[in-house]
Nucleic acid binder design. Sequence first.
DNA 1: CGGGGAGTTGATCCACATCAAGGTCTGTGG
DNA 2: CCACAGACCTTGATGTGGATCAACTCCCCG
Lengths: 235, 235
Amino acid sequence: MSVKKNESTTICEHCVHQSDIFRYLTTEEYEQMTYVKSCNSYKRGDIVYHEGNRVGGIYCIGKGIVKHYKTGIDGKEQIVRFSKKGDIFGFRSVLSEEVACTSTKVIEDASICFIPVGNFFDWIKHNSDFSMRIMKLSCKELGEANQYIIDIAQKSVRERLAEFLLLLLDNFGTDSDGNLNISLTREEIAGLVGTATESVIRLLSEFKADNLIELERRQIKILNAKQLKRICDVF
Amino acid sequence: MSVKKNESTTICEHCVHQSDIFRYLTTEEYEQMTYVKSCNSYKRGDIVYHEGNRVGGIYCIGKGIVKHYKTGIDGKEQIVRFSKKGDIFGFRSVLSEEVACTSTKVIEDASICFIPVGNFFDWIKHNSDFSMRIMKLSCKELGEANQYIIDIAQKSVRERLAEFLLLLLDNFGTDSDGNLNISLTREEIAGLVGTATESVIRLLSEFKADNLIELERRQIKILNAKQLKRICDVF
DNA sequence: CGGGGAGTTGATCCACATCAAGGTCTGTGG
DNA sequence: CCACAGACCTTGATGTGGATCAACTCCCCG
């Protein structure tokens, strides 16, 4: 259940500044946005919306990380994507006029803005630069989803795990110690790679034994990206 | 390699009429389209474009069926989608300004129109109804791709095969004999389901033995859709 | 300091891939 | 019209990646 608290506008402004997509709004539209949007803060574990919900607008992340996942057999989560600072999400359901095809849950305390569908549609309708950016975004996500499909269909768990470690590195970068800037449970990694938790654990230990990574609880440090790349590049 | 022949405009007009997306063009734009588009006919096996190609426009199918696939390990095809009469494709690469993320090959003799990217962009820029439709389309495909991911990640081959048979039924319908209106090799079905050819054969025979389907070479007739639905609906 | 979620490890099992061999259909050219 | 090549299909035998089950430990937090 989502615990929301209203926040001062200051953080909100912050959020919008993070996202380059709103640069394509006119000054007037931008002002309108700061007026209509509402900003909330979320804790790890909070649900932004559930699969099957009707989504009444789009979301923009000012701070934090969320995962987008579908719930499958026995409630097993399959993560299809992450969003982080500056990313927008929810537009897929809004634009396709369908209910949400994924659930969105916070995995790192976040501050997220909500913009009602009406305004969003207005901008898309009247601002072709903005609408072009949105289109580009959805097409990019579609390309990534297609890649995901063939990865899961044809690569081994070992290959996929190597690939997703690199993807996390690319997406979230590292802190000053070289650790990945995202903290996932083994179960979440399993839900991302599409495998069982135990398999993730075994393969991570294997990678560690081969000096490809370092492990310190949920901290993962990638030591040998080149070799990981070699493992996942089987095509 | 793609064998193309120019066709009379008559068939071309035909093609555009099939697609409801062009109804959203203004009369002027529509006229422009009939002027700039070029129509070609393709035989089964012809390639429209390869994964990694730069795509210079969008395609619209007047007749026939194509498959969109990625090539993986050992050249094994993973089909991610089909397009048929009235569908447009190629816009993903165009809009995301990336190279094609899939190859497109004809699986039923087809007549396909090509519309250059320049005109397409013009319409999107100046016609918000049209651009909205395109957006809706790409978001719908994104939702389907997400579903595909969790299916492949969590369902058994048996469940997926049942699901894809129903999906083919839904997409292509049946002829007067009740056979699916699409003819795929066992290998293509395997590439769709994400499994080995032999597994497809064994499971199809199983379904046949259970009187769920009838098989006559590449003709597949679905006898008991309800039971197939029960097999694939494990979530 | 104890309860619970997360992580780990080992043992077991099976769905499915892979390999191998043969059968059937179709189109081509002699 | 036949024969032959090649693509496709089928069936059986075998191997294995990784899921599942079970037991235990570790670590955090109230």
